[in-house]
Simulated assay, not measured.
Amino acid sequence: MVNVTFKQEPVTLLGKEVAVGDKAPDFTVLSNDLKPVTLNDSKGKIRLISVVPSIDTGVCSEQTKKFNQEATSLGDDVVVLTISVDLPFAQARWGATEGVKNVQTLSDHRDLSFGEAYGVAMKELRLLARSIFVIDQDDNVTYVEYVNEVTNHPDYDKAIEAVKKLTNNQ
């Protein structure tokens, strides 16, 4: 079981922890235009899923911009998704302001479908815990990072390396 803190205070994660080797759980989140998006919508692609508590805060913003920058070098077979519980309108506004075009921002605000499926919904805050998931073309989880302290950055290099490892095996 993953132990996660937010500002050094323990939080309870709802849902089942996902591990390398698991079949990626399905989920339904909302795009910025309020359309439902599921894991199946990117079937056949490598998915890097970057999970942030709130996109318009320091570390979350930096994390999303970092993966936006990296996305251009990952190739057409890779989809980069950032999921938070921010409203889709706020995500769209933030993306336009920050010039983020290579990452699809998705909202789990409606029912925490992603958060509970991937074990990252923080019960006490109704936010998602910072985490990274890499899923291959066959929906297998190949990389997982649950960041122990939600206010810290993930290991960007390891996540990108996990994606590149999959792109080299094609």
Results as ranks from 00 to 15, higher is better:
residue 161 E to Q: 13
residue 40 N to P: 05
residue 142 T to M: 03
residue 108 D to C: 07
residue 47 R to H: 08
residue 95 G to R: 06
residue 99 G to D: 00
residue 155 D to S: 14
residue 17 E to G: 03
residue 76 D to S: 12
residue 124 E to W: 01
residue 12 T to P: 10
residue 65 K to M: 14
residue 94 W to F: 07
residue 100 V to S: 02
residue 150 V to S: 03
residue 110 R to Q: 11
residue 19 A to T: 13
residue 32 N to W: 01
residue 102 N to Y: 05
residue 61 S to V: 08
residue 98 E to H: 02
residue 147 V to P: 08
residue 144 V to M: 10
residue 22 D to C: 05
residue 143 Y to A: 05
residue 18 V to S: 04
residue 87 L to V: 04
residue 14 L to N: 09
residue 19 A to F: 13
residue 62 E to N: 04
residue 157 D to Q: 11
residue 102 N to W: 08
residue 34 L to H: 14
residue 22 D to T: 00
residue 81 L to F: 12
residue 158 K to C: 06
residue 107 S to H: 14
residue 6 F to G: 07
residue 55 I to C: 09
residue 80 V to D: 05
residue 62 E to R: 11
residue 80 V to H: 02
residue 126 R to W: 00
residue 37 V to L: 05
residue 90 A to K: 03
residue 107 S to A: 09
residue 152 N to D: 15
residue 42 S to W: 12
residue 42 S to K: 13
residue 99 G to K: 11
residue 122 M to K: 07
residue 91 Q to K: 01
residue 137 Q to N: 00
residue 96 A to N: 14
residue 28 T to C: 06
residue 145 E to V: 10
residue 12 T to L: 13
residue 159 A to G: 02
residue 168 N to Y: 04
residue 113 S to Y: 07
residue 83 I to N: 07
residue 47 R to N: 10
residue 72 T to V: 08
residue 90 A to M: 04
residue 137 Q to V: 01
residue 64 T to M: 14
residue 156 Y to V: 06
residue 119 G to Q: 05
residue 46 I to M: 05
residue 74 L to W: 04
residue 96 A to V: 07
residue 72 T to N: 09
residue 161 E to D: 04
residue 137 Q to D: 00
residue 94 W to G: 02
residue 156 Y to A: 06
residue 76 D to L: 00
residue 4 V to S: 09
residue 119 G to M: 13
residue 16 K to V: 08
residue 101 K to V: 09
residue 103 V to M: 04
residue 98 E to S: 15
residue 157 D to L: 10
residue 71 A to F: 02
residue 169 N to E: 05
residue 116 E to M: 12
residue 124 E to G: 03
residue 50 S to T: 14
residue 119 G to F: 15
residue 21 G to K: 02
residue 108 D to T: 01
residue 147 V to N: 03
residue 148 N to F: 08
residue 169 N to V: 13
residue 104 Q to N: 12
residue 144 V to N: 01
residue 38 T to F: 00
residue 52 V to M: 08
residue 168 N to C: 12
residue 22 D to G: 05
